[in-house]
């Protein structure tokens, strides 16, 4: 397979390089908003998101965003939803990216049979249509956020592994790595001391994208009714808004906020990844 060429895509943004920082800033602002919301959920949320009140209240006093079909406060759901959604996104992406990065680093450094095997495997996982497989996996492991996280991670490591490996192949030929080797540095030392720092940028950009991807996947799974019903993620909120007539009734205060939150948070991660784009242009797999 033609490896090197695939990864070589140049760096150049749509915004002039000066606005690069603005993009990053925008991403950071969006994300800090959500992260603060998630961390301080009990302080921000006006109610317990599980407490029942009158159903289908429109926005008003006491319930700034109204209530859902069984009378739970929507704003509180939204605030607590940030916790669950971001948690799923972060953890799934962390698992996928760190596994992918570790594999990419080591096989990129070691080469040989392991490299061949892992990259074939990566090709395989790269080619598998992700969503249907996550669905199948979740269905077999059964609903629950841990299973969703595991399923997303299992199917998400490949693209990171490929990109990191490609970068390692470039870095390992650089003089400082060669001289370290000549000085008799061990493999692990070189990987951790030289290769990891020099691929960190790629890994972080990839991780940021992976979070975005994981959040979208979770939303899709929830929409199909395979989410974790005991957890209030944004995806589950949307699921209930759809399945309990929120959309049909035109209760925009129910279905609009979670959708906007998902989109904004995903956008935030995409912008961040884009600003740090080492893997040029390709934000996605």
């Amino acid at each position: 397979m033609l490896k090197s060429k695939r990864a070589v895509v140049a760096a150049s943004g749509p915004f002039s390089s000066g606005s690069q920082n603005k993009v990053a800033a925008a991403g950071i602002i969006i994300l800090s908003f959500f992260i603060i919301m998630a961390v301080f959920a009990p302080l921000v949320a006006p109610h317990d998101p599980f407490a029942l009140d009158t159903p289908y209240l429109p926005p008003g006093k006491g319930h700034p965003l109204g209530t859902n079909d069984i009378g739970q406060d929507l704003l509180s759901e939204l605030v607590y939803g940030a916790r669950v959604s971001l948690f799923i996104g972060f953890l799934a992406a962390f698992l996928a990216t760190s596994a992918g990065a570790a594999i990419g680093l080591f096989v990129g450094y070691l080469r040989g049979a392991w490299d061949e095997l892992c990259m074939r495997l990566a090709d395989l996982f790269f080619l598998i249509p992700a969503l249907p497989l996550v669905i199948v996996l979740v269905a077999y492991l059964k609903p629950g956020i841990w299973n969703i996280i595991v399923a997303i991670a299992i199917l998400g490591w490949a693209s990171t592994a490929r990109v990191v490996r490609a970068r390692v192949l470039q870095v390992r030929e650089m003089p400082f790595v060669k001289s370290a080797k000549a000085l008799g540095a061990g493999g692990l030392y070189i990987v951790l001391q030289h290769l990891l720092p020099n691929t960190m940028e790629v890994i972080l950009a990839k991780a940021s994208l992976a979070i975005a991807g994981a959040m979208l996947t979770e939303a899709g799974i929830s929409f199909l009714g395979l989410g974790d019903p005991t957890q209030k993620s944004w995806g589950m909120m949307l699921h209930y808004a759809f399945s309990h007539g929120g959309v049909i009734n035109g209760y925009w205060w129910w279905y609009l906020p979670p959708a906007l939150c998902i989109s904004l948070a995903v956008l935030g991660f995409v912008l961040l990844s884009y600003a740090g784009r080492e893997e040029k242009g390709g934000w996605g797999n």
């Binding site: 599980f50 407490a51 029942l52 069984i70 059964k142 609903p143 019903p229 005991t230 699921h239 209930y240």
Partner: peptide, 27 residues
């Protein structure tokens, strides 16, 4: 878990029983 209706009923049961001093954990 795949049935929204069941989840809603269980949530209501949990809330009612809590008032009676019974702690229900939903699964």
């Amino acid at each position: 878990a795949d049935d929204v209706l069941r989840k809603d009923i269980c949530t209501a049961v949990k809330t009612d029983l809590k008032k009676a001093g019974i702690d229900v954990e939903l699964a």
